[in-house]
Amino acid sequence: IGSLMYASIFGNVSAIIQRLYSGTARYHTQMLRVREFIRFHQIPNPLRQRLEEYFQHAWSYTNGIDMNAVLKGFPECLQADICLHLNRSLLQHCKPFRGATKGCLRALAMKFKTTHAPPGDTLVHAGDLLTALYFISRGSIEILRGDVVVAILGKNDIFGEPLNLYARPGKSNGDVRALTYCDLHKIHRDDLLEVLDMYPEFSDHFWSSLEITFNLRDTNMIPGSPGSTELEGGFSRQRKRKLSFRRRTDKDTEQPGEVSALGPGRAGAGPSSRGRPGGPWGESPSSGPSSPESSEDEGPGRSSSPLRLVPFSSPRPPGEPPGGEPLMEDCEKSSDTCNPLSGAFSGVSNIFSFWGDSRGRQYQELPRCPAPTPSLLNIPLSSPGRRPRGDVESRLDALQRQLNRLETRLSADMATVLQLLQRQMTLVPPAYSAVTTPGPGPTSTSPLLPVSPLPTLTLDSLSQVSQFMACEELPPGAPELPQEGPTRRLSLPGQLGALTSQPLHRHGSDPG
């Protein structure tokens, strides 16, 4: 009997000691992992102490058991019943959930998450997105703005933001810190809205009876308010094209079509300037034949640059190039080494500058006005007194259609001029006259002087055409309008007829 009692007592005591040691061994194993994590990542002392304290409290609170892992091991129907039991206190005593059906309560219970916070733990920081609604079931918390405590909340209090009033989550206007050990039930806004969409009859009752104890939403960050730039940057990543407008005076608003859609830094370009900076079609017209890549860069430059609305530039004389043409100036200075066709295309550029300027006046029909002061630039669209967005969009579309028509007509005119030049060069190729044979009589004449090349004649003739079109064909006081194609086609051969009437002889060394 004594040996039996000794064996039973010894066996029970050893089993008890073994169970104690097993729990202690698990605790030390998990604690060792936490300390190894702290050492590996070199976490500083204040945060390291918070980690160790939280682990110790969580171990004593749950005995080292992962409740979520245990809950996920059950089937979904059983999980709903378990969640309904775990959140029964909240669902029974909170006013917004009263009167809900059994199915609605089960769906809500599945969406709730339980959070346990030790003292000093910050649940929400200032500036964080308010993605959830919090219900306090135990403990107390404090809300701070800077170093000032603005509120202390306790059991059955609710904090967050009214989700039904805002389409997008706002930002917190303060820090939420736990004063004691707290148990909180939180539900994400997407989950709550999903359940309320499934039960629309409960939705009206819920929003009407929901009383948020403390609204954390920062009202200064609401979209459309003066301080909402940061919020707009976070939620409006896919922005449309940006529009900046110059201020319109009362006198300017009476004149229709007073602005032109141009790229940034293009205030001095012609009315047909689009795409790359520098001139019509993204580059100076005089350098068009020598740089074919300008047409390839036109599309990307047009689509990537934001639109700006600026006044037209001052008018340019008909014979003056659009500006920024070092290529043609070098050719004029060193005409001995340049291609003979460069002079002809220089005359073509003069005609283009004249036609572009006159067509700009035809479509816009307003006098040039000086540029406004820099303080009046970049007025935002949302400022008071601005035109409605639809009106601005319609004006932009009208300007775009005008620019497209202008570009089409300029292309047709350019093709006409090039065809005339090619026809003239085919009839009378460039050549130098040879020395004529002296006559049989004693009164022999001296050799004839060489005839100037055709490109120079073409430049003079085209300059005469531009001056003739600019000065004589337009009646005084009438708006400057571009001439039609047949009129220009008839004027060019008439001007060139006198020049080509002389018999030109080919030089023996000319390969053409």
Rank of each mutant, 00 (worst) to 15 (best):
G324P: 08
Q495I: 11
G324R: 09
S305Y: 15
L427A: 11
S228T: 12
A132M: 12
R368C: 07
S334C: 15
L427W: 15
Y181W: 05
F468R: 08
L210M: 11
E254L: 09
K171Q: 09
E230F: 08
R138K: 13
A470F: 04
S314W: 08
L418E: 03
G360H: 14
A498W: 14
P511C: 04
S383V: 14
I158D: 02
I351G: 09
L192R: 02
D413P: 03
E194Q: 07
L163A: 10
S260Q: 11
D336H: 10
L243I: 12
P438W: 11
A371I: 15
L504P: 05
L492K: 09
T180W: 01
G139P: 02
G227S: 11
I351H: 09
L193C: 06
A344V: 09
F214S: 02
E298L: 06
L210T: 06
Q422H: 13
R368Y: 07
E365V: 07
E332V: 11
D190C: 14
F206A: 01
S290N: 12
S209V: 10
R368K: 12
G139F: 03
G146K: 13
P380H: 04
R359K: 04
V465Q: 12
P372L: 09
N215A: 04
P321S: 10
S273L: 12
P503S: 11
S509V: 10
M198D: 14
R177D: 01
V465I: 10
G127T: 01
A434I: 09
L499F: 09
F468T: 07
L309N: 13
L163F: 11
M328D: 14
T456H: 14
L381W: 07
R423I: 05
L210N: 03
G441W: 10
L153V: 02
N339I: 12
R248I: 10
A470M: 09
A178M: 04
S284C: 15
Q362G: 08
V195P: 01
G324H: 09
I136A: 01
Y181N: 08
E407Q: 08
A431S: 10
G139C: 03
L377D: 09
P370D: 10
L399D: 01
M328N: 06
F135Q: 01
L366K: 11
P280L: 12
F135S: 02
S203Y: 09
S411C: 15
P311M: 12
T437Y: 11
N215L: 02
G441K: 06
L366C: 09
K240C: 10
N215D: 04
P503W: 15
Q255W: 13
T373A: 12
M221W: 04
L496T: 11
K242W: 13
D190R: 07
S272C: 05
A498C: 09
C182V: 09
D191M: 01
T416S: 15
P475E: 09
A434D: 09
L165E: 14
E194N: 04
F159N: 01
A151V: 03
S375L: 09
E142R: 03
T426I: 12
A431L: 12
S358P: 06
G174P: 02
G282S: 05
P322L: 15
D336P: 10
I158K: 02
M328I: 13
G356L: 06
S304F: 06
A434F: 08
S290P: 15
S509P: 09
N156Y: 12
S244T: 10
S305F: 06
G160E: 01
D175V: 07
T180Q: 05
T373N: 08
R316Q: 09
D357A: 13
R189Q: 04
P271V: 13
S304C: 06
F468C: 08
C471Q: 08
D460G: 08
L377N: 09
R241P: 06
P511L: 09
P476E: 05
Y134M: 04
L144W: 12
P300L: 03
S444F: 08
R189W: 09
P162G: 03
A398I: 10
S501N: 08
A151T: 09
S294V: 05
T213I: 03
E480V: 10
Y166C: 04
T219E: 07
G288P: 06
S334Y: 07
G268A: 10
S137M: 05
S225T: 12
L243R: 08
G154S: 09
G146M: 08
L406S: 04
L376D: 09
R395M: 13
A167E: 11
L192Y: 02
R217N: 13
L129N: 08
R177N: 03
I143V: 10
R506Q: 10
N404R: 14
A498G: 10
V348D: 07
S452I: 07
R386M: 15
L327A: 13
H188S: 10
S172T: 01
G170L: 02
K333I: 10
A167T: 12
E407K: 05
N173E: 05
P493L: 04
P476D: 15
S314C: 07
S140G: 04
H507N: 09
G233Q: 09
S466H: 10
T436N: 10
L133D: 01
P292N: 04
F312L: 14
S394L: 15
T500H: 10
F245E: 14
S291P: 15
D330Y: 08
P388V: 06
I158W: 11
Q495E: 05
S209Y: 07
S303E: 12
S452G: 12
L504W: 13
L504C: 06
E296H: 13
G494A: 07
A151H: 01
T253K: 11
